[in-house]
């Protein structure tokens, strides 16, 4: 499937058409085509997911380079191992199993390194990365008030204080819409264990955000 741009004889009257080159391919068709080496199918397959994979990695690791590394490594593994994908779970689950395991490894390494401060060097000296993100946003939207900045900082602080598993479950349930059962399955644990992680994370969040609600 490609998006074609058709000029009806008149370059001014541009009309965009979606023209189907292959009869409605669904995801399993894409996977099968990609397994046979169709690169276009592979691109389309991963493009359905890569944005949310990157968002997950960035929010979990809170570091641009780490998130970019996860992206590369995850999709390289997908590319390399796609032939061994046997449709015994959904592609989504399979992919996220790869991604979350990579993120967990990375988070563990960071914990060992005692959570390096997320500072960057700028012309004004050393700055906290999150502050900069916030200032950029505030500059792009002057109406955004101090309160929203405090809220974000508070949430980020709590997230930083969670165990890697709590953080992972919280992220997947609240921001990626995955059910606890699927999260448990993905992390190789039970639904009950995932539920407990989520509960503890929510408790900490509630304590920290008590005066906002």
């Amino acid at each position: 499937m490609r998006l074609f741009w058709v000029l009806d004889g008149n370059p001014q009257a541009v009309r965009a058409y979606a023209i189907q080159t292959a009869a409605g391919m669904d995801e399993s068709d894409l996977i099968r085509a990609a397994q046979k080496g169709d690169r276009d199918a592979f691109e389309r397959l991963i493009r359905g997911y890569d944005q949310s994979v990157l968002r997950l990695a960035y929010n979990l690791l809170r570091n641009e380079e780490d998130a970019a590394d996860i992206y590369q490594e995850a999709f390289l593994r997908v590319h390399k191992n796609l032939n061994s994908f046997r449709f015994d779970c959904s592609f989504h689950t399979w992919l996220y199993r790869i991604v979350t395991n990579l993120c967990l490894d990375q988070l563990r390494k960071k914990k060992v390194r005692r959570e390096e401060p997320s500072v960057v060097e700028t012309s004004d000296g050393t700055r906290d990365r999150l502050d900069m993100v916030h200032e950029e946003r505030a500059a792009s939207d002057p109406q955004r008030n101090v309160l929203s900045g405090q809220l974000r900082d508070r949430i980020q602080n709590v997230l930083g204080s969670l165990t890697v598993r709590e953080r992972m479950v919280f992220e997947m349930r609240h921001y990626h819409g995955m059910r606890l059962r699927a999260i448990g399955e993905m992390l190789g644990t039970t639904e009950e264990a995932a539920k407990n992680c989520l509960f503890r994370a929510t408790q900490k969040m509630r304590v920290a955000l008590g005066d906002f609600v």
Binding site: Q51, Y58, A67, V133, S148, L151, I155, M205, V213
Partner: peptide, 13 residues
């Protein structure tokens, strides 16, 4: 609802 606001998330640069 608070957790779902855009301020709760880091936007990918």
């Amino acid at each position: 609802a608070l957790l779902q606001t855009e301020d709760a998330r880091l936007e990918v640069p």
